[in-house]
Write a protein that binds this DNA or RNA. Structure first.
Length: 668
RNA sequence: GCGCCUGUAGCUCAGUAGGAUAGAGCAGCUGCCUUCUAAGCAGCGGGCCGGGGGUUCGAAUCCCUCCAGGCGCGCCA
């Protein structure tokens, strides 16, 4: 009972913390302070209790206070009376046009539009957000380097990459890691297949043509089936595993060749989606540098794990789990080898800089001007360091929740409570395949699997849509559209645009679902370019940009001169008709919520909201675009004002698209 | 058995730190291209928010319970 109560208290304090963070959004924060200041003379209210929410309708104002309701309850009076009095107290607030009482006791605030727009326009490039961490590590992708990437991996990478982008936008220092399990059983399976089934020599392997990842995809499923059918082969596989872990030739050479080549393929796939990394820590380096030994010593010394001499788990080192009194998690097996979780605890310690040891690094690839570093178990001569974050996000699907909990427990048991609290499992649901998608990829299914309406992606069974296949199909479709609409463009320009469109389609598709929602992948849906899709967002931006381009062509002004002209302009909003005034305001106020959306996305790790926000913004922009012509407007003053309005919207849209990792083509 | 998640329009999903009339997209139907790109816009139809209780001025949102589904709970990784 007592602990339950404590847990509740803890939750409440966490929630308060989040509330404060989210409403950091400048205008609201300033307003909340001022409101609290005015009201506290009459009632006992603090800034934290001032909850400013959006109104359901533009006619009701821009922001609403609902504090009259709880206050009325406390004071046992009518909320309407309180609201009326509050409205009096708040009269003449700076930045506020007027205040009205509505409904049962809502206090509705109408912002001073002229003032608001001027201010927001001037601060277009300042987010108004502040970093809170020393260094944040985002670990994502983490694909076993033994086969082609599939759409399940894409979801992981898109979520992780978007999180990193949002954190950077907030001003945080972010390090993106992609962990490579280059000595694990999945790689072992493929090495087994190459040696025992395919009888490939290392030289033959090196000469193998393109699509090595596709080749391994098929080989991996073949090996899985072979091993299931030939139990006796298990000992050979175990032997290979051991040799790879100890770096013995030639098995370890096979493993290295396979994992590096597949890793190259994965990076190339992710690059198509604008996703990149800072560092690739490898399991082989962890083994070579004996990270586990260090962690093991510490875990033993602190009593975080202990030895069992009798019972079911006799001979094992185990860890107690909070809240599961009679259950123990085995960390070291009775044969002395460490389990997956054990290694993960050591690795997590490294991420926080708590291991007292770092990898060596060397360049693995370059991505534009950015070097992607890979870990090494031996000195390389490069003086670079990674890890040592103050906060760590592990992007891993929901099935790993239990193990992630154990890892956090490991940190806690070692006394690292703060790090445990900042060790965040960013979990999300899996990607499955719809019945039609299953029919699309030719794959043998068991009778049991055939009966289900959808199937979980499985590399082992070969059930999955390969990432490159999906992107290829999207590019192909985009290219056909681009060629139809812009026949004057040369081939390379058309291809470039198609790549950008395909990338946007994938990224939006992966982000539009809430993370707890199981995505049942369907080709028809993923290949759609209309409605709530990435290409729709791009199209919106392209059309706006086209207005600026045409304006510049007509007037001969440069982009800077154009910006200077509209920044200088000072249009009096009262000159607008009521309809245009409303449409202008709806667009501007909605767009200005971008900061709050980013903070919300980070706090809840829910990027579907940010995706939705961007989509809704585009809907508003398209509505405006359709209704108000800019370039043909005869009234020069009004024309400049409209240019300013869409410039504002366009800038914010670009910011949002950047966060979603969506590029804007020059033409579509 | 225990734990986590999910159930909202014909379909796919938003909305869940309680707030005013439950929203999009797709699919269907009606209009709009001598006009800044129709990958667009405007409009129509479509809902016991899984069922039942409770808390509250107010519940899709919080609590209890039941029903249905998914996923975890290895000396696998």
């Amino acid at each position: 009972m007592n602990t339950l109560f404590q847990v509740k208290l803890q939750l409440v304090s966490q929630i308060n913390f989040v509330i404060i963070k989210i409403t950091m959004y400048k205008t609201k924060k300033i307003l909340r302070d001022k409101i609290a200041d005015r009201l506290k003379a009459e009632w006992p209210v603090t800034t934290d209790e001032i909850d400013l929410v959006s109104t359901p309708d533009e006619k009701l104002g821009d922001l609403a206070l609902s504090l009259a309701f709880p206050l009325a309850r406390k004071l046992k009076t009518n909320p309407r009376v309180i609201a009326t009095r509050a409205a009096e107290l708040l009269a003449g607030l700076e930045g506020v046009e007027k205040i009205e009482v509505a409904g049962g006791g809502y206090i509705n605030i109408f912002l001073d539009r002229q003032n608001f727009f001027d201010q927001k326009f001037r601060n277009l490039n300042k987010s108004g957000l502040e970093p809170e961490e020393k260094k944040i590590i985002v670990e994502h992708t983490n694909i076993n380097p033994n086969k082609a990437a599939h759409i399940g991996h894409l979801r992981n990478a898109c979520l992780g990459d978007t999180l990193a982008r949002c954190l950077v936008y907030k001003g945080e220092q972010v390090e993106v890691q992609n962990y490579i399990d280059d000595t694990g059983v999945q790689v072992v399976d493929v090495v087994f297949g190459l040696i025992e089934l395919e009888k490939k020599t290392l030289t033959e392997l090196g000469k193998m043509a393109d699509k090595f990842d596709y080749y391994c995809w098929d080989l991996y499923t073949r090996v899985s089936r072979y091993l299931a059918d030939h139990e006796s082969a298990g000992s050979r596989k175990a032997e290979i595993l051991k040799k790879i872990e100890h770096g013995e030739s030639p098995e370890a050479d096979y493993a290295r060749l396979v994992s590096r080549r597949i890793l190259q393929a994965h990076l190339a796939t992710m690059n198509r989606l604008n996703i990149t990394y800072d560092v690739l820590p490898c399991e082989s380096s962890i083994l070579k540098l004996k990270f586990w030994d260090k962690a093991f010593t510490r875990l033993k010394e602190t009593g975080a794990i202990y030895y069992l001499s009798e019972g079911e788990s006799a001979g094992c080192w185990v860890m107690k789990l909070e809240g599961e009194e009679e259950k123990e998690k085995i960390i070291v097996r009775s044969d002395g080898t460490v389990t997956y979780v054990g290694k993960d605890i050591a690795y997590q310690l490294w991420k926080f800089g708590l291991l007292g040891q770092d990898f060596y690094y060397e360049p693995f690839a370059t991505d534009g001007s950015r070097t992607i570093w890979i870990s090494s178990g031996e000195p390389t001569g490069y003086d670079v360091h990674f890890g040592g974050g103050s906060q760590v996000y592990n992007v891993i699907d929901v099935r790993q929740s239990y193990l992630q909990k154990v890892v956090v427990q490991g940190l806690k048991s070692l006394g690292y409570d703060q790090e445990a609290a900042k060790s965040i499992h960013f979990s999300y649901e899996m990607v499955a395949l719809s019945a039609t998608s299953l029919a699309d990829i030719k794959v043998d299914l068991s009778d049991k699997d055939k009966k289900r309406s959808f199937l979980e992606v499985s590399g082992r069974k070969g059930i999955g849509v390969k990432a490159d296949d999906l992107i290829d199909r999207l590019e192909e479709k985009a290219l056909a559209e681009v060629a139809k609409r812009n026949p004057e463009l040369d081939e390379s320009a058309k291809k470039q645009i198609s790549r950008q469109i395909a990338g946007a389609a994938v990224r939006y598709f992966m982000l539009k679902y809430a993370r707890n929602s199981l995505v049942v992948f369907d080709f028809d849906e993923a290949l759609n370019f209309e409605g709530e899709t990435g290409p729709y967002l791009q199209y919106t931006a392209v059309r706006l940009r086209s207005i600026f381009r045409k304006f510049e062509e007509k007037t001969g002004l440069s982009s800077q001169e154009l910006l200077a002209r509209i920044a200088r302009s000072n249009f009096n909003l009262s000159k607008l008709g009521s309809e245009e005034s409303r449409d202008f305001w709806e667009l501007v106020i909605y767009a200005s919520y971008v900061d709050e959306e980013v903070l919300r996305a980070i706090a809840t790790l829910e990027f579907a909201g940010l995706a939705k926000f961007t989509f809704n913004l585009c809907q508003k922009i398209n509505g405006y675009y359709h209704h108000y012509t800019v370039l043909a407007e005869k009234n020069e003053e009004l024309k400049t004002f409209r240019l300013k309005t869409i410039y504002f919207a366009h800038e914010i849209l670009n910011q949002a698209l950047g966060l979603l990792g969506i590029q804007v083509p020059g033409k579509m």
